[in-house]
Deep mutational scan, measured.
Amino acid sequence: MGFKLLSKLLVYLTASIMAIASPLAFSVDSSGEYPTVSEIPVGEVRLYQIADGVWSHIATQSFDGAVYPSNGLIVRDGDELLLIDTAWGAKNTAALLAEIEKQIGLPVTRAVSTHFHDDRVGGVDVLRAAGVATYASPSTRRLAEVEGNEIPTHSLEGLSSSGDAVRFGPVELFYPGAAHSTDNLIVYVPSASVLYGGCAIYELSRTSAGNVADADLAEWPTSIERIQQHYPEAQFVIPGHGLPGGLDLLKHTTNVVKAHTNRSVVE
């Protein structure tokens, strides 16, 4: 069995187990497998329904001669939608809004960016022009300005110390501490036991640490421990890039980060 097929099978099995364990909360999309990078042309966006009122959005972007996937989250909030992270750029984010209108038909009224990198804030200006209120932590807003990236308009308070959590509509926002970046936030959907790890969490097929220019490698494993301790009931975990899975993604990420750190020390 090929690795790609095995990865998709694991996603399907995880979703099936969740649907059985929580039949009222989960209505997993039966329309197909989780979209992969090879299936999404740059400039297009796919939506994948995880649970009743919960979707991931998947886009792709060219970077350094390669094409990478990027995940975000959409959560229903009454007759409105909360968006977590842009679709990595203005063109993708405009396509995301169009796809949401086509498939869901509810307005996106608020959006949260989970850290300051372009795959999370690139497209904020498109959201703002569409009347979406954009939010991020003060740290993310400051770092985005320093980096020359787009800056969300509103500040999220109460997320300055490791372990801080605040309720934001249908989700809980959690600051686990520094990891992929010093400002990275985690998003949890309690009604569906869905954990969105953003770039602080890796997919299972990833074996290298990737972009760690703004990471705190020493603190990252401790931050992941905080996530595990705060959300032990999480059933569906979405990484910032690639295929979702279960809580095993947290341990896998820790292993990859520690291996990278150990290699760096040896070198």
Results as ranks from 00 to 15, higher is better:
1 M>T: 06
5 L>I: 15
5 L>H: 15
7 S>D: 07
7 S>V: 10
9 L>V: 14
10 L>Q: 15
10 L>Y: 15
10 L>M: 11
10 L>N: 15
11 V>H: 15
13 L>G: 07
13 L>R: 12
14 T>L: 10
14 T>Y: 13
15 A>R: 09
16 S>D: 08
17 I>F: 10
17 I>Q: 07
18 M>R: 08
18 M>Q: 15
18 M>S: 15
19 A>M: 15
19 A>K: 15
20 I>G: 14
20 I>C: 09
21 A>K: 15
21 A>H: 14
21 A>Q: 14
23 P>K: 11
23 P>Y: 11
23 P>H: 14
23 P>F: 09
24 L>R: 10
24 L>I: 15
24 L>G: 09
26 F>A: 12
28 V>L: 08
28 V>G: 10
28 V>C: 07
30 S>Y: 13
30 S>R: 12
31 S>H: 08
33 E>V: 09
36 T>Q: 10
36 T>A: 14
37 V>N: 14
37 V>M: 15
40 I>M: 15
40 I>H: 07
41 P>G: 15
41 P>W: 07
42 V>M: 07
42 V>E: 14
42 V>N: 13
43 G>H: 10
46 R>H: 09
49 Q>T: 10
51 A>C: 05
51 A>R: 08
52 D>E: 12
52 D>T: 12
53 G>T: 14
53 G>P: 05
54 V>T: 07
54 V>A: 06
55 W>F: 06
57 H>T: 01
59 A>D: 05
60 T>S: 13
60 T>Y: 10
61 Q>L: 07
61 Q>C: 05
62 S>P: 07
62 S>Q: 08
63 F>L: 07
63 F>Q: 05
64 D>W: 15
64 D>E: 08
65 G>D: 10
66 A>C: 06
69 P>R: 09
70 S>E: 03
71 N>F: 03
71 N>K: 04
72 G>W: 02
74 I>M: 05
74 I>R: 03
75 V>S: 03
78 G>H: 10
78 G>R: 09
78 G>I: 08
80 E>C: 05
80 E>D: 08
81 L>T: 06
81 L>I: 12
82 L>I: 11
83 L>Q: 00
85 D>T: 00
85 D>G: 00
85 D>H: 04
85 D>L: 00
85 D>E: 01
85 D>Y: 00
86 T>R: 00
86 T>M: 00
86 T>W: 00
88 W>K: 00
88 W>G: 00
88 W>S: 00
89 G>L: 04
89 G>A: 00
89 G>W: 01
90 A>Y: 08
90 A>Q: 10
90 A>R: 10
91 K>T: 14
91 K>H: 10
91 K>S: 15
92 N>S: 06
92 N>D: 02
94 A>T: 14
94 A>E: 14
96 L>W: 00
96 L>H: 01
97 L>E: 02
97 L>H: 03
98 A>D: 11
98 A>S: 13
98 A>V: 13
98 A>C: 09
99 E>H: 15
99 E>G: 10
100 I>K: 00
101 E>T: 11
102 K>W: 10
104 I>G: 00
105 G>D: 10
106 L>R: 11
107 P>T: 13
107 P>C: 05
107 P>N: 13
108 V>A: 08
109 T>C: 06
109 T>W: 07
109 T>Q: 11
109 T>A: 11
110 R>C: 06
110 R>A: 14
111 A>N: 06
111 A>S: 14
112 V>I: 12
114 T>I: 00
115 H>I: 00
115 H>E: 00
116 F>C: 04
116 F>I: 04
117 H>F: 00
117 H>Y: 02
117 H>P: 00
118 D>C: 06
118 D>E: 09
118 D>M: 09
119 D>F: 00
119 D>A: 05
119 D>H: 01
120 R>P: 01
121 V>N: 00
121 V>Y: 01
123 G>P: 05
123 G>Y: 04
125 D>A: 09
125 D>W: 07
126 V>A: 07
127 L>A: 04
127 L>R: 02
127 L>Q: 01
129 A>S: 11
129 A>R: 11
131 G>L: 06
131 G>E: 07
131 G>C: 06
132 V>S: 04
132 V>N: 01
133 A>F: 11
133 A>M: 14
134 T>G: 02
135 Y>E: 01
135 Y>T: 01
135 Y>S: 03
136 A>T: 07
136 A>W: 05
137 S>A: 08
138 P>K: 08
140 T>Q: 05
141 R>A: 08
143 L>K: 08
144 A>W: 04
144 A>D: 03
144 A>R: 09
144 A>G: 05
146 V>A: 13
146 V>G: 13
147 E>W: 15
147 E>G: 13
148 G>K: 10
149 N>Q: 13
149 N>S: 12
149 N>V: 09
150 E>Q: 07
150 E>P: 04
152 P>A: 03
152 P>T: 03
152 P>W: 02
153 T>C: 06
153 T>A: 11
153 T>S: 11
155 S>Q: 14
156 L>D: 02
157 E>I: 10
157 E>F: 10
157 E>T: 12
158 G>N: 14
158 G>Y: 07
158 G>T: 06
160 S>L: 11
160 S>I: 11
161 S>I: 12
161 S>Y: 13
162 S>Y: 11
162 S>E: 14
163 G>I: 04
163 G>C: 02
164 D>P: 06
164 D>Q: 13
165 A>I: 13
165 A>S: 14
166 V>T: 09
166 V>Q: 11
167 R>L: 11
167 R>A: 11
168 F>G: 01
170 P>I: 05
170 P>L: 05
171 V>I: 09
171 V>G: 02
171 V>W: 03
172 E>Y: 04
173 L>I: 14
173 L>A: 00
173 L>W: 03
174 F>I: 05
174 F>W: 02
176 P>T: 01
176 P>N: 01
177 G>C: 04
177 G>H: 01
178 A>M: 08
178 A>R: 11
180 H>M: 00
181 S>K: 03
181 S>R: 01
184 N>V: 01
184 N>Y: 03
184 N>M: 01
185 L>G: 03
185 L>D: 01
185 L>N: 00
185 L>P: 04
186 I>S: 04
187 V>T: 02
188 Y>V: 01
188 Y>I: 01
188 Y>Q: 01
189 V>I: 10
189 V>T: 02
189 V>E: 02
190 P>H: 06
191 S>K: 12
191 S>Q: 12
192 A>T: 11
192 A>V: 13
196 Y>F: 15
196 Y>C: 04
197 G>T: 03
198 G>H: 02
198 G>P: 00
198 G>C: 06
198 G>A: 07
199 C>Y: 06
202 Y>L: 15
202 Y>I: 15
203 E>M: 01
203 E>D: 07
204 L>G: 14
206 R>I: 15
206 R>D: 07
207 T>M: 13
208 S>I: 10
208 S>F: 10
208 S>W: 08
209 A>I: 07
209 A>F: 07
209 A>D: 06
210 G>Q: 06
210 G>H: 03
213 A>N: 13
213 A>Y: 08
214 D>V: 05
214 D>N: 08
215 A>S: 10
215 A>G: 07
215 A>P: 03
216 D>E: 08
217 L>G: 03
218 A>F: 11
218 A>Y: 13
220 W>G: 01
221 P>N: 08
222 T>C: 06
222 T>N: 13
222 T>S: 13
223 S>A: 10
223 S>P: 07
225 E>V: 12
226 R>M: 09
227 I>H: 01
229 Q>L: 13
230 H>T: 13
230 H>Q: 13
230 H>G: 09
231 Y>T: 02
231 Y>G: 01
233 E>D: 12
233 E>F: 11
233 E>N: 12
233 E>L: 11
234 A>R: 02
234 A>H: 04
234 A>P: 08
234 A>S: 09
236 F>S: 11
236 F>A: 10
236 F>M: 09
236 F>E: 07
236 F>K: 09
239 P>C: 02
240 G>C: 01
240 G>T: 01
240 G>F: 05
241 H>F: 04
242 G>C: 06
243 L>K: 15
244 P>W: 09
244 P>V: 07
245 G>W: 03
245 G>Y: 03
246 G>E: 09
247 L>G: 10
248 D>K: 09
248 D>S: 12
248 D>I: 07
249 L>Q: 02
249 L>R: 01
251 K>V: 12
252 H>P: 05
254 T>F: 14
255 N>M: 12
255 N>D: 13
256 V>S: 04
256 V>C: 04
257 V>K: 02
257 V>S: 02
257 V>Y: 05
257 V>Q: 02
257 V>H: 06
259 A>V: 10
259 A>Y: 09
260 H>M: 06
262 N>L: 11
262 N>A: 12
262 N>V: 10
264 S>V: 12
266 V>I: 08
267 E>V: 05
267 E>L: 10
